[in-house]
Amino acid sequence: MIEFSNYDILRNLLFATQWTILLSLAAFVGGTTVALALTAMRLTRNAIMRTLVRMYVELFQGTPLLMQMFLCFFGLSMLGYEISAWGAAILSLTFFTSAFLVEIWRGCIDTLPKGQWEASRCLGLSFLQTLRFIILPQAIRVATAPTVGFSVQVIKGTALASVIGFVELTKVGTMLNNATFEPFKVFTLVALIYFMLCYPLSLYSKHLEKKFNVSR
């Protein structure tokens, strides 16, 4: 059996942290992109599009992220689509992230006065022009703090990718524990690393919120 010094444990965990960060970033970028499109769909006057978005949100908010990951990974392979753990993790985290962001952003956009839409319409702006020039610039100011706050949930959500075999922080933690039988030490370190990833984001989100509340 290989001996693991404390240094080895930490080095392995930090190496795995890169994958946690990368997966979080990918999920966040994917989630934001999809959420943007869904938000635009939700704001149209087309009832079918709005219903589709609502169903999407309810589906992915109403089921555990773990099940979504299982379905993406095992389900897709059973249907004959070979998908890597990495691909399945990104896919399901994108669903998860976008479903929550759409709801968060909906709240932000709804705080803007209806008059902003009407004034734009009366000036002859198209729906997309209104979104781009009037609604988004104002909504972004409101939405930044809760969006950054939510990114913490995405980081924590990546831990679930360990169960489909994606080698990130939690998975490496489990592997190190199996090799060293020192669960307390290993998982304390794992938790500490998650905390150091998440806490600055929480702080930043609170800071943004304060700044926003002062400026308005």
């Binding site: 902003q116 009366c122 702006l125 198209s126 610039p137």
Partner: peptide
């Protein structure tokens, strides 16, 4: 109809009670 309304906007201006300026 959206396209109609946009054409209409070229000839009709509207002023609201609460201004509805774009604050940003």
């Amino acid at each position: 109809d959206d396209i109609q309304v946009r054409r209409l906007a070229l000839s009709v201006g509207m002023i609201f009670q609460n201004f509805n300026l774009f604050p940003h």
